[in-house]
Design a protein around this nucleic acid. Structure first.
Lengths: 179, 179
DNA sequence: CCGATCTATATCGATCCAATATAGATACGG
DNA sequence: CCGTATCTATATTGGATCGATATAGATCGG
């Protein structure tokens, strides 16, 4: 999903500045399934403006540069809906963690365990964030996305925990002897 | 995980041409968690060669351009391991499907259902492929990655199936009246 | 009151992707 | 036996995108 389409989608929910669009990815329901950087959002908004799919109004501010607030136009709304009706690009999951685990045999003793523990902890945090944000009221789509995310992170966590004992090291000799 | 590191990783498992490296993503255990295109693999291999992290030997062929077979060098192996020991980049999951579902309220009647059904079918296929490729012998890392992938796709499928009735349409009036 | 963080816009270089070009090999149906 | 499609293999190009950085006033906590 290209950045232009993502911007249009967010603007269907209300006007926003480039900065606000970027931040919606961090803390809203969009989290974990879409992302874009400033370096792509600002050029995308400029092009969308040229093409008449969004409009800008500059809100003057004292002692600051203008706030550029973007709104979607009727033709922008049509273009957005049309792009959702076309066949969608495939999902892409890139995991440096899984990649590293593929080569755990080349790494120092116990490093795989450390990687897994770190990753499990991060997953727990994301799961907690998703559960927390689920208390707020949502559109049906946001509810679906939230539940989908929770289902995935929950499954990941369960798998990691089930796998964990396979990476267990022998207890140190002194402790083993004491038992 | 940048393409250079990915190439180095694959070369730790044996020599390969750029073409073979690309294809390993399609049908091996790496599937679904790492990817790279020709447009990034060939330049990456050239740079790695310049830096002495891989070496090339040109195998002559009749009536064809040479096969360029790449091998990882000792310093390449060190560099690869070092990059796995550094903090890893975060996972990135991009899902045009979930993005579209976020805006299902803007789409024609039943389109969300069509999206979900298509996506569920694709997920089933990927799950079957992963289960199938699990019968082949694997390194411990590959086994972990395969199980991890299956756990995720299984959970996705279960969620989609559980959610499906919520998108059920009213049966056509004629059918409803006949009951 | 000072440093840190936040709001906000913007650009640059590096990376990466998708499409395309080339070209012989192989395979398969008509 | 011929045409067409697919495969192996390398490579480039244009465009999209990312990550880092620059700027600068506001605000807030210690």
């Amino acid at each position: 999903m290209d950045v232009r389409t993502i911007c249009l989608g967010i603007l269907t929910r209300g006007d926003a500045t480039g900065y606000e669009i970027k931040n919606l990815f961090q803390d809203d329901g969009y989290q974990y399934f879409v992302e874009a950087s400033f370096g792509s959002i600002y050029p995308a908004l400029n092009r969308l403006t040229e093409e008449g799919l969004v409009s800008v109004r500059a809100e003057a501010q004292e002692k600051r540069p203008d706030r550029k607030v973007y709104s979607i136009t009727p033709s922008g709304r049509s273009a957005f809906i049309a792009s959702l009706l076309k066949p969608l690009p495939e999902d892409r999951h890139r995991s440096p963690f899984v990649f590293a685990m593929l080569f755990s045999d080349l790494l120092p003793e116990n490093h795989a365990r450390a990687l897994l523990d770190t990753y499990a902890a991060q997953t727990e945090i994301k799961l907690a964030q998703l559960s927390e944000s689920n208390t707020k009221p949502k559109t049906p789509g946001e509810e679906f996305a939230n539940g989908f995310g929770r289902a995935i992170y929950q499954a990941m966590l369960e798998y990691l925990r089930a796998y964990r004992p396979r990476l267990e090291t022998e207890p140190p000799a002194a402790v083993a002897a004491a038992e």
